[in-house]
Design a protein around this nucleic acid. Structure first.
Lengths: 190, 190
DNA sequence: TCATGATCATAACAACGTTATGGTTGAGTA
DNA sequence: TACTCAACCATAACGTTGTTATGATCATGA
């Protein structure tokens, strides 16, 4: 049933994700959504968790498979992040919905989001083992914010860029931030 | 009537913003929403436009009133941006809703968002008159992305920070990015 | 075999955005 | 002044949504 929901979300977006649509696609009646997931909110939570698990896994793949130059590793994690969003833009939008008044993830879903962030921090620590965990978490958080903000504003301002050019833009912005963060204590813009 | 809608949004969030609730608060019947705004979408568009106008105005105030050090001016614009979000978090969330499948702003609303961005670019140009318009727009866009991403992830990860500490975090991240951006052609993280 | 919990089909409910219907009001024109 | 027309309004009804209620079926364990 969660596969049915994921398909509908990918194809029609959140507006098409009604309890009846899910039940129809799963070839059951609406009561199944309630008995299996406790209702629509349960479906949204399951999708949310699935999204963060996928995102975390793609970031972790980068950490495991790459032992190159430290910042290139970070940029590859960012590439993986962008690739996930490009593949599943509607799932991404659900995961980062600004309207907390509509859907608030439950504690398990919140933990999945935190776990994905921890995996992102792990990439930063692998790239920069000289950083403290606190420092790496801060830089990871701010890098994530930059990339997430770019993703959101790209859609918001309806920017037209080829995927390759977009990737270059994001990488360049991230490199600028990282460079500044590395020189944080020495040079500060006046 | 738009004031009624704005009040409900501020108090109850998007989930409370129904056609009936707006009509009740405006002491009219629901038909008024349709004759004045063409329906609920029209109300959302009007709120969206109002939000970007307010945001643009607060950024423009900074440009007009400050002639200090160039980067401090940029950081003051960021402060104004954060202050707007802190004052109107639910309006901000409506303006930057990730779920385009639920509400897509109409062309006039999109223009209002663009106009606010142009005002932000103007702050960057005033701070750095040696920059080309294209370069300033790029740096403004990326700065905006960083700040917006930080705002979004703060809520998403339910970070607890005092307003003053939060402001310092955002300023620090923005300074790092700006420093990197200014040294873009000379030093690049490897 | 019986009891119980899980699952299911269906109908009904309340709330939602919207449309339909008929009425009122104000402005403009003959 | 009377008539017409457009704008606005109150109310009801419609179709859709998430949810609950009801009764039935099925599987499992004692």
């Amino acid at each position: 049933m969660i596969a049915a929901a994921a398909e509908i979300l990918d194809e029609e977006g959140i507006a098409g994700l009604s309890v009846r649509a899910i039940a129809d696609r799963a070839k059951t009646s609406t009561i199944g959504v309630y008995s299996h997931f406790g209702g629509k909110k349960g479906v949204l939570n399951a999708l949310y968790i699935s999204g963060f698990e996928q995102l975390g896994a793609s970031v972790e793949d980068v950490r495991r498979e790459n032992t190159g130059a430290s910042h290139e590793r970070i940029l590859l994690a960012i590439d993986a992040y962008l690739e996930f969003e490009a593949r599943k833009p509607r799932l991404y939008a659900l995961m980062f919905d600004a309207q907390g008044d509509r859907f608030q993830p439950d504690p398990e879903a919140t933990r999945a989001a935190r776990a994905a962030f921890v995996k992102l921090v792990a990439v930063f620590l692998a790239a920069r083992p000289d950083w403290s965990r606190v420092h790496a978490a801060r830089i990871a958080f701010e890098s994530w914010a930059l990339v997430h903000g770019l993703v959101m504003l790209r859609t918001h301002q309806t920017l037209k860029q080829s995927p390759a050019a977009w990737q270059r833009t994001v990488r360049s912005a991230a490199r600028n931030y990282l460079f500044g963060a590395m020189n944080d204590r020495i040079n500060r813009p006046k």
